[in-house]
Lab assay of single mutants.
Amino acid sequence: MEVRTIKVFTTVDNINLHTQVVDMSMTYGQQFGPTYLDGADVTKIKPHNSHEGKTFYVLPNDDTLRVEAFEYYHTTDPSFLGRYMSALNHTKKWKYPQVNGLTSIKWADNNCYLATALLTLQQIELKFNPPALQDAYYRARAGEAANFCALILAYCNKTVGELGDVRETMSYLFQHANLDSCKRVLNVVCKTCGQQQTTLKGVEAVMYMGTLSYEQFKKGVQIPCTCGKQATKYLVQQESPFVMMSAPPAQYELKHGTFTCASEYTGNYQCGHYKHITSKETLYCIDGALLTKSSEYKGPITDVFYKENSYTTTIK
Score class of each variant (00 low, 15 high):
L118H: 03
A87D: 01
G101H: 06
L65N: 08
T226K: 15
T5R: 13
M209R: 15
Q270V: 09
H90E: 11
L121V: 14
L186P: 02
P249H: 03
P97E: 10
N14Y: 07
L37G: 07
I223M: 09
T91C: 09
Q270N: 15
Y306N: 01
T292H: 14
E296V: 14
K298R: 12
G164Y: 01
Y137R: 03
Q134S: 10
R66Y: 09
A87H: 03
K191W: 07
T103A: 06
T312N: 09
R141L: 10
D62N: 15
K219D: 09
N157W: 04
N157Q: 09
Q270C: 11
K275L: 05
V304F: 01
M85L: 12
T35H: 00
E68I: 05
R167M: 00
G288R: 02
D38W: 10
Y297Q: 00
T116R: 02
S104M: 08
T43N: 08
E253H: 11
A117Y: 03
L119G: 04
D62S: 15
F128M: 04
E239L: 10
L126F: 08
Y84H: 05
K158V: 02
Y57Q: 08
E168A: 11
C225Y: 00
Q31F: 12
P78I: 08
A132L: 03
D13P: 07
T211V: 10
C285A: 14
R139D: 11
S25E: 13
K298Q: 08
G228M: 01
C225T: 01
I45R: 13
M209Y: 15
Y36Q: 05
T226D: 10
V221A: 04
H273E: 00
W107F: 05
A115M: 06
T260Y: 07
T302Q: 01
T35R: 06
N100A: 14
N187V: 12
G29A: 08
Q251S: 11
K229I: 08
K106G: 15
Q237Y: 15
L88R: 04
T312Q: 12
H18Q: 07
N100V: 06
A117N: 04
P224Y: 13
Y73P: 04
S294Y: 14
T292K: 11
Y96N: 06
T282E: 13
L37Q: 13
Q20D: 07
D23I: 15
A108Y: 04
L291M: 11
V185M: 06
T5K: 12
H51F: 05
P131Q: 05
Y306R: 00
T282S: 13
L102M: 12
T116F: 04
M170W: 04
Q197F: 09
A150R: 04
E2I: 09
Y269H: 15
E68M: 06
C227H: 02
K7D: 11
T55W: 07
L173Y: 02
R141G: 07
S25K: 13
C156S: 09
S181M: 15
L283H: 00
A154M: 03
F217C: 06
L283F: 12
Q251M: 14
D38E: 13
D38Y: 09
F305R: 00
D38R: 09
H276D: 00
V236S: 06
A146W: 08
K275A: 12
A115K: 03
F70D: 07
E162V: 04
V12F: 06
L290R: 12
L118M: 08
Q216S: 10
V21E: 14
S294P: 11
D41M: 10
Y265L: 00
T27Y: 09
R141F: 08
G257E: 10
F242Y: 00
Q98D: 10
L235P: 03
Y172T: 12
A247K: 03
Y172H: 11
Y138H: 14
F259N: 00
R139K: 13
K275V: 14
P78L: 09
V42L: 12
E264S: 09
A117C: 09
K255D: 09
N89K: 15
F174T: 03
L114Q: 04
L173A: 02
V189F: 08
Y73N: 02
T10N: 09
L153Q: 02
S240L: 00
R66M: 13
L59P: 06
G267P: 07
C285I: 14
F128G: 02
K219W: 03
F80T: 04
N187Y: 06
E52P: 07
C225G: 01
N110C: 03
D41K: 07
S50F: 11
C225K: 01
V3M: 14
C271A: 10
R184L: 02
D13R: 05
Y172Q: 10
Y155S: 02
Y234H: 07
T313M: 15
I286P: 00
S295H: 13
A247V: 04
T19Y: 12
V188E: 06
Q230K: 12
L114F: 05
A69T: 08
Q216C: 09
Y269F: 12
P47T: 04
L186H: 08
S295D: 15
E125W: 05
K280W: 08
K280Q: 14
T27Q: 14
G272M: 01
C193S: 03
T91H: 04
G202M: 02
T278W: 04
I315N: 15
N187S: 12
N178D: 12
Y28S: 06
E125M: 05
E144A: 12
Y269K: 14
H176P: 02
C190R: 04
W94H: 03
Y138N: 15
R66G: 10
A132T: 04
T19M: 09
D38N: 11
L65P: 05
V3I: 13
G272F: 00
A132K: 07
T199Q: 09
P60L: 04
A289N: 11
I286R: 02
V22I: 10
A145D: 01
S240A: 06
Y138E: 15
L37S: 12
P248D: 08
L235C: 08
K92I: 11
C193P: 04
K7V: 09
K233L: 15
P248E: 08
T76G: 14
T10E: 06
Y306L: 01
V203P: 15
T211L: 08
T258L: 07
M85K: 07
S295C: 08
Y234P: 00
D77L: 05
Y172F: 10
P78E: 13
N110E: 06
A289T: 10
K218G: 01
E296G: 10
E215I: 05
A231E: 00
K127T: 13
S246D: 00
L17W: 07
K54A: 14
K127R: 13
F128D: 04
S25A: 15
D180F: 07
N129H: 13
Y208F: 12
Y84R: 03
D13A: 06
Y274W: 03
S246H: 01
S171P: 04
K191Q: 14
L88W: 10
H18C: 07
H276F: 11
A154T: 11
S263A: 13
L114C: 03
